[in-house]
Design a binder for these strands. Structure first.
Lengths: 201, 201, 201, 201
DNA sequence: GATGAATGAGTGTTCATTCAT
DNA sequence: CATGAATGAACACTCATTCAT
């Protein structure tokens, strides 16, 4: 990449960060291009040198979230015990949610009303996430390490748990929720999803 | 309540229904007072005789969602087996989500950015829902019917599963998700949350 | 027409007049909706209750110019002498140009670049004007009162004379052009187009 | 002129040509400096090394149109017959319109609203054109070759014919107007303006 | 001299809200 | 009480112009 292209890419990323921050703060509709520009430290018109329009910013944020590195990382843990394995998945998901929090929150207000954004988000983020989950679950079941189950229910259920727990942490004022370390959270969920709530065998 | 007040209350409810429908369809920001008025079969100006402004409609929708009937219903099932009991909770939550779908979807876009709305929603809807869940879980654990666990993790996790599954059903185009009856869904979740995914005892 | 519709029609006409005035003064592109609103004595937003957008104002002005009454008026003069007849045509054209001067001038800046406006203008204004001219010329030639000629050249030529003379009067600062009454102008043009410039028979 | 100045003059002319082309295509207001720069094969900023601003380009185009060569050419035909003489004038005007079509069309949208441009255009283009026409007409009348007439009416009338015929050719889609060679056009106009439309002597 | 990225003032349009009828 | 025409503040986007490289 030439020096010129690199600078351009940096500027673009900077604008995208600013947009995610403002979208997360105000929601997509209430966010103004002026506020995004201020957040990025540039003039409003400059944004349009990098993005066609406001909505293109939103789609750019969605594109940023492509979940490639997940598969590679999880591949390393294929030989772990069931406990460690489920815990690894959960930990990875929590990390992803935390790292991309402003980007995810920037999208969430428009996901419900914007068809194209929803399709992109599902095909680029949710789909791959559920996909890897489903694939590994299937393999473990085939190996006999986990019991047979309806994957199309279990995988979204597990994912949903994390999403809601992450959302509650992000949205609720501090102190409402009891503080819990990530490890404790992961432990508890691992136990829940491996052994359930029934009283022993 | 006088005859006058009753009529007024009916009109108010009618407007609130219309607002929920339009908010669910377009999202709060894109919804126009004109469209809401048309949906309610009245003139735009009339809305302001019942609500102070657009946002007041949203808060009114949140107030509408108070989760009263839940407790009563669940009280009747206190003597059931663990399976039937968990299934009953899940079934009740699904019913609630389906019945109030436009109201819930109307709120969802603004929950993330509107502090007051969020507080109202959590204190009136989410809080009570989690509260009843927590209370019953606690009682069952005390009775020895379920194992001890971190309630503040388990209850949101279960609730989150349902929310995400409901959201996916509502948002994704038909055919993407395998069709599943409510009973099958409830069965699978009951099994998951009672016995987990591990292979046998 | 009901009282409501009449009021609406009046308002619409008032806005159209204001738009024509401002377009004539500034040209279509430089004219702002705010200035048009001020000229009409209303708020900017009100314009949009009567016209979809700025361009719709321009098309509305073009529609205003439909040249229906011309035929009827000229029909009365079918029995006149050649002199009186040509003079009548010329006088009618000058009257039309003068009466609709702001409307015509409002259109002229955009005619050159706006395909649809051009088509409307030609089919509704220029076409009919040239059409009646051509028809009467043809009849007079058939009657032997005027000599055979290429109508598609002569009619636009005559029309063009009037347009340019009207434009020069409208655009040039007073005093540059020698003052000339309409009658003198019509006399001179009649002589020109009936007998030409050659020195007698 | 030094080598430096010559190069600069060439560059200036190149920009002026590009500007005329783009102004003719889009109209002055819709034309962007970027498009003009692209048309000229340079960067937008470079234009400002040769012209103070966008409007200066327009004035530059008007200045380009000075009608010098006309007089010289017509001087050679002073001894022709009336027919040939009028035909020569007409032919020269048509040639001028055709040769400078983009330049003329570039000016036309702004002539109506820009006082200074209008003055320049009239003093440098229209004025001289009408002036030569008037002078020669006067001389011919003095010689007794043409009849006495109001020159301030006849000359603009003749000029207007050509302008309108040229504009109709330029603006209307092909096929609407019957095709006519320049010679046929000139013949017909010559006949019209020398002998008029009346039947016989 | 030439470049083209950055600027920011300016505009068409929307829509929540008001108020005369 | 109900209406809906009128309002005008707010905002996305454009583009002439500047200036650091």
């Amino acid at each position: 990449m030439t020096w010129r292209e690199e600078l351009r890419e940096q500027r673009r990323a900077r604008i995208l960060d600013a947009a995610a921050t403002v979208f997360a703060r105000r929601g997509y509709q209430r966010a103004t291009m002026k506020e995004i520009a201020t957040e990025a430290g540039i003039a409003p018109g400059t944004i349009y040198l990098y993005f066609a329009n406001k909505r293109d910013l939103l789609l750019g944020i969605a594109d940023q979230l492509i979940t490639r590195p997940v598969d590679r990382q999880l591949a390393d843990v294929a030989s772990l015990s069931a406990e460690d394995y489920v815990a690894a998945i959960l930990r990875e998901r929590i990390r992803f949610a935390r790292q991309n929090q402003p980007f995810l929150q920037a999208l969430v207000t428009e996901i419900w009303t914007d068809q194209e954004l929803r399709v992109r988000f599902f095909s680029q983020v949710i789909g791959p996430l559920l996909g890897t989950g489903a694939r590994y679950l299937q393999e473990r079941v085939a190996e006999g390490k986990l019991r047979p189950c309806r994957i199309e229910v279990v995988v979204p259920a597990v994912a949903g748990s994390i999403v809601i727990l992450a959302a509650m942490r992000a949205l609720l004022p501090n102190g409402v929720l009891p503080k819990l370390s990530d490890d404790e959270l992961v432990d508890e969920l691992t136990r829940l999803y491996l052994y359930g709530l029934s009283t022993g065998p």
